[in-house]
């Protein structure tokens, strides 16, 4: 049985998505992290477009355009502006044990594939196996949120988590209803604005964007 070209292409994009998730996990520099996030958005938009083309679902074209606009242009632009104004453009995270993080990431991918296995069995056509990859990139973003100590990289991790979920929605279910997708996009946009406000408030109060300063509230 030959696999149709479009499906091969989507699988390739899915693999790229996972690869970028790993690259983000290992990236110490904040500027590069944001660029990687923009690339992830581009891959996502492209894969949505391909799914739209092969299944001729018109609302997915809108969804692809929305992804392109929001995740590749608006959000990275906002983040670039923010790190420029906050003067953390060249910041490097020091407390990061990359080999251990990568190994943990690997374990998470295996876990995600196992978790998604019974669902992949049910999926027909182009969706097979993609849920596993989507879940794996969601888990990798979660791991990234846990390991990061800088507020900006935590937010990038949060946004890339959203990317993984979006990939799950478009590839596994051929897209959520448009009204839901619009709502989610609006939420993500507003969240990014609020994160921006937070960066300034945090820096003003703690004179740094390290969240290690913010571990005072505990039950002892």
């Amino acid at each position: 049985m030959t696999i149709p070209l479009s499906l091969q292409f989507i699988n390739l994009l899915a693999a790229l998505l996972l690869l970028i998730a790993f690259a983000m996990l290992a990236q110490r520099r904040i500027l590069s992290l944001i660029n990687l996030f923009a690339w992830q958005g581009a891959v996502l938009a492209l894969s949505t477009f391909v799914v739209a083309y092969t299944t001729s679902q018109h609302h997915l074209y809108y969804s692809a355009a929305l992804t392109l606009l929001l995740k590749v242009m608006v959000l990275p632009w906002l983040l670039h502006r923010l790190i420029h104004r906050l003067n953390v453009r060249w910041d490097v995270e020091t407390l990061l044990n990359i080999p251990t993080t990568m190994l943990a990431g690997l374990a998470l991918v295996i876990f995600a594939f196992n978790l998604a296995a019974p669902i992949s069995q049910l999926a027909q056509g182009i969706t097979r196996g993609l849920i596993g990859i989507a879940l794996a990139s969601v888990m990798l973003s979660l791991l990234m949120m846990l390991t990061r100590r800088k507020a900006v990289s935590q937010v990038v991790a949060f946004l890339s988590l959203e990317n993984g979920l979006f990939f799950a929605a478009t590839s596994a279910t051929q897209g959520m209803p448009l009204v839901v997708e619009l709502g989610i996009a609006l939420d993500v946009l507003v969240a990014t604005f609020i994160f921006g406000i937070f960066f300034f408030q945090i820096r003003e109060t703690f004179e740094s964007l390290d969240i290690t300063h913010m571990e005072k509230l505990k039950d002892d």
Binding site: F198, M214, K216
Partner: peptide, 29 residues
């Protein structure tokens, strides 16, 4: 805008954001 209120809000935002992202995955399923 006190240090502890900022910390609380950041925690609220990040934890509920992650939590709710998992709920979105559930909704997708």
């Amino acid at each position: 805008r006190t240090p502890s209120s900022l910390e609380a809000a950041w925690k609220y935002f990040i934890l509920c954001g992650v939590g709710i992202a998992l709920a979105l995955f559930g909704t997708i399923l």
